[in-house]
Structure formats: structure tokens, C-alpha cells
Write a protein that binds this DNA or RNA. Structure first.
Lengths: 241, 241
DNA sequence: CGCCAGGTTGATTTCGCTCAAGCAATGTGG
DNA sequence: CCACATTGCTTGAGCGAAATCAACCTGGCG
């Protein structure tokens, strides 16, 4: 890219820093160590990045694309416990907890992912306490979200959970159309959506149909328009509150 | 206790260290700061320690007793997202994530709880990176457990979830009776048990009745005997696996 | 004693799952 | 280019697990 070694951070780190996440804490000498140990590759849709019960070999950084972290049993029952978008870090939970992976990472949208091996990460953590504090903060936030979803699956109807999911996805994938409506291209199948809210694909379909019949959304395939954003927010808050 | 100031850690810290948890990392000068800022008190059954949406003022250490961390909405729908036994730390999630409390802590069994204000904790964290690493590890472990429970509520039947809960509780509260059976005094009501697995108290009652009819357990009020531990473990593994 | 919270049980309903069919879009091989 | 398989989506019908509603029992406890 024409930069000299002195001010170079490398493309992987640039993505990290661009997203202003926990990696902003790195010092220049950390950056060198990071770049020496990072390996990037492309994954196609459907590929897996790591498997449930595998030992954790390191961290994965999502540069582009979309990854689902899924727990499953061998009767085919499964649930997506987390999504990872560009800028997110994957695999830090098992690394920090010194456990094996407890879930599988599968690529939903073609992704570019960088890998940093565990030893390098632990070395960075030892050398730079600030990095640890950043990770502490983001792990604590992730724990809050996990507990939030636990509560929702336990206490709220499928309809409410889907409304919540759509509103969340609209933050990432929505763009405002002319007349104040929100349009988005859903990045995943109905089956994925269902797995995210602990339901079956058919139930997602029916919820979409109902919401459309009531005039809240218009959906066709993976294109979805939110026509009455506020009434959906109201319905959600009525149930969450 | 007849100890001189030089080797004294104080009763609160002693409990921490006895449980060999994240607090083992404290240095002598940290201990002084800790003891200067810690305040202990007793809570009766039913009292609340902190409330959902309150700002997080600090950490709470459970010395004795049992605390439930519950998320709720105002239609009365709620779920217990975590239990805190003696030795556990409460309120670290909102502190570390710099958020308000997202749940209420209610006392299930009369408890002695020590409070350390947020500023002191943050100061300790800044001074002692090891403490941060310990907390990082235990937050990551908690995240793993939260995702595990999310998956279970989404994918498993009430019966299976209750079996899992009973086996977990038997670790804490069970003692082996003469002929290899496991006896325990449940520390909470059916309503609490139900909230922990995302179900209603009646469903817990029925599950108990069925398990008893099948000869797996004997239950009377809060006294519960597990007669066929292994067959319950097998049934659980068949579903989890 | 009467009261009340906790617990059990039965009857009924409801929500969401399962199973099955049909359809559209996409891909594949002849 | 067409025949066909495949995959994702939708819809209906039936079923089942668990929620809800209601009655009743039990054991503290003022």
C-alpha cells in the first residue's frame, strides 16, 4: 500500500481499529507482534470456521461477511447463540475461559476472516493490561446480551422475539427509503432467523405473514420493508418494558 | 480474631480466598484498600440487593445464603438468569460493561453480603492487572454458561431442563445417603425453580410427579431424593449430547 | 382459630411444532 | 436449451407440550 514499516498497522488491524473496538488499545510494539502472527483467509458460504468441542487455537477477526455461532446436539436441535459481523472478534470466550469451543462458527455470508493464534493473544494480553480491560468490557457486554436473549426466549412469544430480531437487524442492514420506511435485505434464510429466536422456520413464515397482513411490514423473499417502525417498537416495549 | 494487622485480610476477603476465586490475585496493599472500602450487611429472605435499571454502585460478595438474579417485565413475566451462592460475586457485569443493572437481585435464602463501591473496584483493577485477568476468565465462563442455558431453553423440553437443573443443584446441595442415593433440601420454591428453566410452577410440579412415578426421584415438599442418578444423567446426555 | 402462601391436580386452551404438500428460484447435466 | 433435482419459502392440517384457569389441599403463623 506504499506505507513504510514505521506507521504500518496492516489491513487486519486497520479493520479492527476502524471499528473502534477493543483493539484500539494496542501499542506500536504490540502491533508488530500482532501482524507477525495473523493469518487471513476467505470462507465461502456454508463453510465452518471452528467446530463445537474443538480445542480453541486462537482468535478470529471478521473482516467482511457474516458468521453465525451455533450450538447443536446430534438430534439436529440447535440454536444460534450469537452473530458476528465485520469488526467482531470470534473465539475469545473459549480462549479466555480456557475451555474448548462450545459452539460451531458457520459462515452465513461469504467472509474474510483473520486468525491470531492463542499463544500470541495471551502474550499480548500479558504485555498490555489495557487490552485485557477492553476485552473485559466487551465480554461483560456480551454476557448482558446473552442474558437478555435468555430472558426473551423464556418469557416472550415467538412473534415478539421476531419483532425484536427484525428491529435489531434493521440497525445493521436497514436503509431508509423515501417515505420514512426502512428497507433491508435480510442476510440469511428463514431457517437462520428461526434458529436465532429459538423457533422453527414455519413459525417465522407465519409471523411474517401476520405482520404483513396487519400492515407493519412488507416482505418478499429476503427483501423486507418496515412500514410502521414505531408501532413495532411500541409492541416490543409493551412486552419487554 | 487475635491476628495482628500485618497478616490480617479481614472476614470478607477470607471468604473470597477460601473459595479460591478471582480474588486470590490481590496483593497486600490491595487488601488494605479492599478492607477500607468494604461494607457488609445481612439480608432477609425476599429482600432485594439491587434493582433492574438502577445504576451500578459497586460489587456485592455473597458470604452466605443464596441470591437469584432475575429479569422481569411489568406484566409479571420474568426469568432467573443466574444464581449466586456463597463465594460468588454479584454486579460485576454492569460494572465492567459500564451499564446499569439489567436485572434484580433478590434474596432466596437469608444472606450475608459485602459491598465494595465501584470506584474502589476500578482502582483495584487499574492497579492490579492480574485481578482483571481473573475477572476476564470468570466473565468468559459466565458467558459460556449463559449461552448454554439459552440453547437449552430454546431447544429442550421442560422435563429435560428440570432434570438438568436438579442435577446441577445436587452438586451444591446434595449429600449422599446410605445406599448411594443423593438427598437434598431444595433451597427454593417451585416458582423459583420454574423461573430458572423458563417454565411455570405447575409444569415443575407435573415433571416432579412424573419423575417420581417413574422411580427416578422421591420428592416431598422441598426434600428430594435422587434414586436413579445415572438414568437421569443418561436421559440428559441423550438430549444434550 | 382463620389466614395465606406454597404446592398439587385436573380441565381446558393455546401456541408453536411436526408433517405434508405445493411452488418459485436456482442450479446442473445431458 | 430443456428436464430435472435441489433448496428455500409458504401454507394448511393435526397434534402435543406446556400455559392458563380453577379448585383444593397442606402446613406454618399471627
Amino acid at each position: 500500500m506504499g506505507r513504510n514499516a514505521g506507521d504500518s498497522t496492516g489491513p487486519c488491524l486497520d479493520t479492527r481499529r476502524h471499528h473502534k473496538n477493543e483493539w484500539a488499545a494496542l501499542e506500536p510494539e504490540d502491533i508488530a507482534l500482532f501482524n507477525q502472527n495473523v493469518v487471513c483467509r476467505e470462507y465461502r458460504m456454508g463453510q465452518t470456521i471452528f467446530l463445537q468441542d474443538d480445542p480453541c487455537r486462537g482468535l478470529y477477526f471478521v473482516e467482511t461477511g457474516l458468521i453465525a455461532v451455533r450450538k447443536a446436539n446430534d438430534e439436529g436441535r440447535s440454536a444460534i447463540v450469537r452473530l458476528a459481523h465485520a469488526g467482531d472478534t470470534l473465539g475469545y470466550r473459549p480462549l479466555l475461559a480456557r475451555e474448548n469451543h462450545r459452539a460451531t462458527a458457520e459462515v452465513i455470508v461469504k467472509a474474510r476472516v483473520c486468525f491470531l493464534k492463542a499463544a500470541a493473544m495471551l502474550h499480548l494480553l500479558k504485555r498490555n493490561p489495557n487490552l485485557g480491560m477492553r476485552f473485559l468490557e466487551c465480554t461483560a457486554k456480551a454476557l448482558g446480551e446473552a442474558e437478555e436473549r435468555m430472558y426473551q426466549i423464556a418469557a416472550l412469544s415467538v412473534r415478539t422475539r421476531i419483532i425484536h430480531l427484525l428491529l435489531l437487524l434493521s440497525n445493521h442492514y436497514g436503509s431508509t427509503a423515501g417515505s420514512g420506511q426502512l428497507v433491508m435485505k435480510l442476510p440469511m434464510t428463514r431457517r437462520h432467523l428461526a434458529s436465532m429466536v429459538g423457533a422453527q422456520p414455519e413459525s417465522v413464515s407465519r409471523a411474517f405473514r401476520d405482520l404483513q397482513a396487519e400492515g407493519h411490514i412488507s416482505s418478499s423473499g429476503r427483501t423486507l420493508r418496515i412500514d410502521r417502525f414505531n408501532s413495532l417498537v411500541d409492541e416490543l416495549h409493551l412486552n419487554l418494558h
